[in-house]
Nucleic acid binder design. Structure first.
Length: 772
RNA sequence: GGGAAUUUAGCUCAGCUGGGAGAGCUCUCGCCUUACAAGCGAGCGGUCGGGGGUUCGAGUCCCUCAAUUCCCACCA
């Protein structure tokens, strides 16, 4: 065996075997229960990051576990075209090549996009494969391939037929850079320092951060109870520069405490547009959809960008004496979540999905959401949901299936259909749908999960999945979100290259709790690598000793005479038949058995973090530090060791598929042809030691260890003994205290009181021995 | 403004339905012991954020205060 696990060679070999033999292909099998997961399709915008690595590891751990339990387990892989995000990337890429999008025809541009789709899909597929994800590659789906296009068209038509889609004028968030409407969820708010300009409109002064918008003002709002302005309500004031008179109107939306308490109402803020709706005003827009000043009112400023106009108008107001004050002010700015450009609110014709009925159903009938705290968030969102703006003014993406429409659909429209649109055949749909568990980051609960829920209910008449498992965002070791701009990101492929896929996978799950944002540093990969090394070396030790029993009878007899022991391999039969297990054997088997139960339970709950810790502690400390050393001393127990090693490898396999498979081969188990054998019907991991409990022996063994430790301590140093005595005295004092408490003795459960009494006696005895 | 969390060892975090405070890393000391120095053994380190309450008993349940984080809405 190699000195260390040669993961580069092993991963390549094993992966090839898996892929060539289509080991993870799932087929309709009436004798088996299906277990289906659809992979959240990564965006084709860039290569995978560590967050994908985390998610894919969870997905694969679940699907492998279920496959081992005997389900017809299917993990459907795929990728998402991510309309707006991809289009931005393609435009950037073309720019680098010196090509401007506006110089291309629609068809030419789409050719570039198509090419991008193909390249990125391949890249993503290869990265997922390197992680060792056991997906059914024959079913790879892309949200913009033909079957998915068909599904989108059908879904749109159906919603339209049912009267759930309408075209309407709405205030929408507009990105002047992407030149498209954004849904509320696509707008991000960041706090930024700004200047609040105090501008004189006749007898009153308004405060605004957008002096360029005064040209569009249709009214000034003041609070109804604001005594400063009560005389002016109903009067008119004049907009500087353009000298147009507008009314002063009392309305609750004006905050008396903010600025001057008087606020202009224009065509360019959400609050204004709502106000104008209430008061039947039609404000004149002065900014067009490219973010450029335009129209009669813009006058001399027409043609300037918003930023340029802001400067120019502020200067003119100052020169003319209308600018009373400039005040530093921090407030939230709305940005496009893709390109971070300031969004402009606009009244615009867009397509919408009516949410009221869909939301109602998604509230009444919903999947189990884990961790549970997200259920409240899910409900809260649905109870406050607004209609869903689904049209986008992009070139690439699903075209709205209506003649003459050039708009495309929100990328989430196609993602919402994912749990059923991935199935090309009706039979597959009937067998594999609804899917079992959906795994995704909590940040797309609103974008995606909720939309899948009501889409499944609407189009398939069933929930798309029973369970939603939400996980956190991978952060760096300081708790900061990994991002390209900060340069604190870790490339999962780099980690695989340096430490191996198993190390990456284990390190991502080890000790993490799914509802918390995990912190990742390369140190974690090192620790995982060390653990793998530990397993590898334990195997090496086993293999070296196994050689002993491959010798000829004569050779063995000869060596036995020289004092070499072979008893550990004398039993070729079934382990269960052995009547002469040593204390150590029984001890480790007992521990193994309770571990199997615990791990099964944890896997069922998708609690991989703690499962990893338990598996590592058991193998490293119980198996290697205690049991293996014991076997060395006694010169027997190799067969039990092999058994224990095998079980641990199987339990680790969903998390670390490569090294476990490699070693299982080495120690004579054949995992790949044994796929069917891995029926982990619970009580159910294969070959569980049937008589699990050896309580008496366990106590004995523990006591033995304890005695040994005490003996060593005695010999080593007096101080150790002194401390032990001190500790025991403390314990005795505690026990006596509790037992002299009448309330405890009378009210606590009898069992506990008895236990305390027994412990006290025991401690006294040990103390006597030590002191004597 | 509405909502959801978090606070346990120097660091990162476990502690399930209340019954003697745990792990890993770090640090200190001793070991290259023929599977493993990517290792082994032995230690140091905590008034479980503060304060109340329920209980025989609270890290765990309730109230309250404080700090931190996230989500949604609004922010002229």
């Amino acid at each position: 065996m190699d000195k260390n696990f040669d993961f580069k060679r092993a991963e390549a070999e094993i992966n090839k075997r898996w892929l060539d033999n289509e080991m993870f292909r799932a087929r309709i099998n009436p004798d088996k229960q299906p277990f289906t997961i659809v992979m959240p399709p990564p965006n084709v915008t860039s290569k995978l990051h560590l967050g994908h690595g985390f998610e894919l590891t969870i997905l694969d751990a679940i699907i492998r576990f279920k496959r081992m339990q005997g389900f017809e387990a299917l993990l459907v892989p795929g990728a998402d075209h991510a309309a707006i995000a991809t289009e931005v990337k393609v435009i950037e890429e073309l720019k680098r090549q010196g090509i401007e999008k506006k110089d291309l025809t629609r068809e030419q541009f789409l050719t570039y996009v198509e090419k991008w789709y193909v390249e990125k899909q391949e890249e993503i597929k290869n990265q997922i494969k390197r992680l060792g994800v056991s997906a059914d590659w024959s079913r790879f789906a892309f949200t913009m391939d033909e079957p998915r296009k068909l599904a989108v068209r059908d879904a749109f038509k159906r919603l339209r037929r049912r009267g759930l889609i309408y075209k309407g004028e709405r205030m929408i968030n507009w990105c002047p850079q992407c030149k498209t409407a954004l849904s509320d969820a696509e707008v991000e708010h960041t706090s930024k320092p700004q200047t609040l300009y105090h501008i004189k409109f006749s007898d009153l002064v308004i405060a605004t951060v957008r002096p360029e918008a005064i040209l569009s003002a249709a009214a000034v709002a003041v609070h109804p109870r604001d005594k400063r302005y009560s005389k002016l309500v109903g009067q008119t004031v004049t907009i500087p520069i353009i000298n147009i008179d507008i009314p002063v109107i009392a309305d609750d939306c004006a905050d008396m405490k903010f600025g001057t308490g008087a606020v202009q109402m224009t065509a360019h803020s959400g609050m204004s547009l709502e106000f104008c709706g209430r008061h039947n005003l039609k404000p004149v827009p002065v900014i067009n959809k490219d973010g450029i000043m335009h129209g009669d009112r813009a006058g001399e400023f027409a043609g300037l960008t918003v930023a340029e106009a802001r400067k120019a108008i502020a200067k003119k107001l100052k020169d003319d004496g209308f600018l009373i004050k400039e005040q530093k002010h921090t407030s939230n700015v709305s940005n496009c979540y893709r390109c971070h450009t300031d969004v402009e609110p606009f009244i615009s014709e867009q397509w919408f999905v009516k949410m009221q009925d869909l939301a109602k159903r998604a509230i009444e009938e919903r999947p189990e959401i884990l961790p549970k705290k997200f259920e409240k968030i899910y409900l809260h969102w649905l109870q406050n949901i607004k209609d869903w703006c689904i049209s986008r003014q992009l070139t690439s993406g699903h075209q709205i299936p209506i003649q003459g429409e050039t708009d495309v659909l929100d990328t989430w429209f196609s993602s919402a259909l994912w749990p059923f649109s991935v199935f090309d055949k009706l039979q597959d749909l009937a067998y594999f749908y609804p899917t079992n568990v959906l795994v995704c980051g909590y940040e797309i609960l609103f974008f995606w999960v909720i939309r899948m829920v009501f889409s499944g209910q609407e189009h398939m008449e069933r929930l798309p999945f029973d369970t939603v498992l939400l996980h956190g965002i991978v952060r760096d070791k300081n708790g900061v979100k990994m991002s390209k701009s900060l340069g604190n990101g870790i490339d999962p492929i780099d980690v695989i290259d340096e430490f191996g896929a198993d190390a990456l996978r284990f390190s991502l799950l080890y000790g993490t709790k799914l509802d918390r944002d995990p912190r990742y540093s390369i140190e974690r990969a090192t620790l995982a690598r060390n653990f793998i090394n530990k397993i590898w070396n334990a195997t090496k030790w086993f293999k070296a000793n196994e050689e002993k029993c491959k010798m000829s009878q004569e050779e063995r007899a000869r060596l036995e005479k020289l004092g070499v022991k072979f008893r550990g391999f004398a039993y070729a039969g079934v382990l269960q038949d052995r009547k002469d297990l040593t204390l150590a054997d029984k001890w480790i088997l007992t521990k193994l058995n309770s571990l199997i139960k615990s791990i099964t339970k944890k896997f069922e709950k998708f609690d991989f973090g703690v499962a990893c810790v338990e598996l590592q502690n058991f193998f490293w400390h119980d198996v290697c530090d205690v049991y293996l050393e014991e076997v060395k001393k006694q010169g027997e127990g190799y067969e039990v060791f092999r058994f224990v090693l095998m079980k641990v490898l199987w339990m680790l396999h969903p998390i670390m598929p490569f090294v476990t498979e490699e070693i299982l081969w080495l120690i004579g188990d054949k995992p790949e042809i044994a796929k069917a054998k891995w029926t982990f019907a619970y009580q159910g991991w294969p070959g569980v030691w049937p008589q699990a409990n050896f309580p008496k022996e366990k106590k004995e063994f523990d006591a033995l260890l304890e005695k040994e430790r005490e003996a060593r301590a005695k010999l080593d140093e007096q101080a150790g003994r002194g401390k032990k005595i001190e500790h025991l005295k403390k314990e005795i004092a505690r026990g006596e205290g509790m037992l002299s408490n009448k309330n405890f003795v009378e009210r606590a459960p009898k069992k506990l009181v008895d236990e305390e009494r027994a412990k006290l006696e025991e401690h006294k005895k040990v103390l006597a021995t030590l002191e004597g």
